[in-house]
Design a protein around this nucleic acid. Structure first.
Lengths: 143, 143
DNA sequence: GATGAAACAGCCGAGCT
DNA sequence: AGCTCGGCTGTTTCATC
């Protein structure tokens, strides 16, 4: 993991469909060299996959929110099962402090968000923060 | 934007490097048809770009946190300038309720996170939530 | 890690349904 | 009009140095 790898990660994070040829010009290496570096980054798990930047609103998800849930530790297993099955949960993190989870969720109506929060209440105490606008969207750390 | 488009988005979100041939098999269309649909999704802005799923810890960022900042509205412009210039801020949302921002940040040391939070205090009151583990990572809404 | 050649995928146009 | 099939171009991959 050297500076060239970091630059490759940064370039791919920006546009993961860039060709090896373009990449090779930018990092002053040959395409096969770039290819083998990317392969190593994938195998080592630095690159976990190739994804999209989506416009959730244009996809019909007008209600995007972060929800913090504070619960008793013994609830965890049932909670993880619950959210794993629930595609409205886009991200979920176990955070420090009181036993808490932070989730990013998306819904196409406020009533569905309301219903979801209601179901979460069974696991613990929630605090919901609805997103108004994206100031900075999912960018990646600098090389 | 029909069910096939939603399925294409879902498949691409899972692996944006999948070939048109593979996609066409999965949605039972021809590769050119898939290609033109993807082009439309890009032009309409549903697909904003092609990115990576990265392991921040393996990239050296052991301290990933969400920080909520509550501030006076007149601070906004200076705040946006500040975070725009700061690559440690991965995401930033304007959230409902008291005039608040929610940021995802990453650092390679706790002292750098501490310094950053210190700088944020100039804009308002902060609440920092450090991520222990990822329960569900950045997946995309179901088709 | 570089080079060159071969395999492959993506793109465009023609013909078909 | 839209899909499928063909050839062409650009991209990736492999063997060799």
């Amino acid at each position: 993991m050297d500076d060239i790898d970091r630059r490759l990660v940064s370039l791919l994070a920006d546009n993961s469909r860039i060709s090896l040829h373009e990449l090779s010009k930018k990092v002053f290496l040959s395409p096969p060299a770039v290819s083998s570096r990317i392969e190593k980054l994938e195998k080592s798990g630095v690159i976990k996959g190739y994804s999209l930047r989506l416009d959730l609103e244009k996809l019909g998800y007008s209600f995007v929110a972060y929800i913090e849930l504070t619960m008793e530790p013994e609830q965890k297993e049932k909670f993880v099962d619950f959210i794993s099955e629930n595609p409205s949960v886009l991200e979920c993190y176990h955070i420090a402090g009181a036993y808490s989870m932070l989730m990013k969720v998306c819904f196409d109506s406020s009533s569905k968000l309301y219903d979801f929060v209601g179901k979460l209440q069974k696991f613990g105490k929630t605090q919901t923060q609805i997103i108004f606008t994206n100031i900075i969207e999912a960018r990646n750390p600098r090389p």
